[in-house]
């Protein structure tokens, strides 16, 4: 192996060490499943390495990897869309430190709802509310228009409001729905 190649590989390993945890977190939110998230990150890193010699000196390595992550996830959902059903319940590791609190119950209800969302709506929510991307950035990453980003987010939020009503309603606490005056 040439010295140049070896040096590039070392840089890639450093990148993976620095960023793989963040990629895993985003992948888990996208897929809702640890095993699939790991597959997604592995595929993302493989594709990132294929372009490494070209992108390693740019400022956009992480943006590139993120785009691969979201696009690969999109390709998986496209391929599987005929037979895939929404996960009823996201795989969730036991959190023994957590009491059954109001906060936890609301969050769990939200998480179950996200699991049932179409995958593109889920991707928009993760990008907007976890990665704090602007709608223009989300549009660029997912290859859709800004209007579509907003409408997909709106659709997801509307569904969530229907399902949860309000955070209190998710707990079974009766509240009157908000009405127009």
């Amino acid at each position: 192996m040439s010295e140049v190649k070896s040096s590039q590989d070392e840089e890639f390993r450093e990148y993976v060490a620095a960023r793989s945890a963040a990629l895993h977190r985003a992948a888990y939110l996208l897929t809702g499943n640890w095993a699939t998230a790991e597959d997604l990150v592995q595929t993302t890193l493989t594709k990132t390495y294929l372009a490494w010699s070209r992108i390693r000196t740019t400022d956009s390595v992480d943006a590139y990897a993120r785009r691969i992550l979201y696009n690969t996830n999109a390709s998986w959902w496209r391929k599987r869309s005929n037979r895939e059903k929404p996960t009823e319940v996201f795989e969730d590791r036991a959190d023994l430190s957590r009491d059954f609190t109001e906060h936890g119950a609301v969050r769990d209800a939200m998480w179950r709802h996200i699991a049932a969302l179409p995958k593109r709506q889920r991707a928009v929510l993760v990008l907007r509310y976890y990665e704090n991307r602007s709608d223009a950035q989300i549009a660029e990453i997912l290859g859709i228009s800004i209007g579509t980003v907003k409408s997909q987010a709106s659709r997801a939020l509307a569904g969530m409001r229907k399902r949860l009503g309000t955070p209190a309603a998710a707990l079974g606490v009766a509240m009157e729905p908000r009405e127009a005056a």
Binding site: R13, A17, S20, L29, L45, T46, R107, Y130
Partner: peptide, 26 residues
């Protein structure tokens, strides 16, 4: 709720135990 819930859920992701292995596999 989404902002706090997604951040909280993401933090529950397992530590990536073997970064070097991930990179070499890639």
């Amino acid at each position: 709720l989404l902002r706090s819930g997604l951040a909280e859920q993401a933090e529950r992701a397992p530590e990536t135990a073997d970064d070097a292995g991930l990179a070499d596999l890639a």
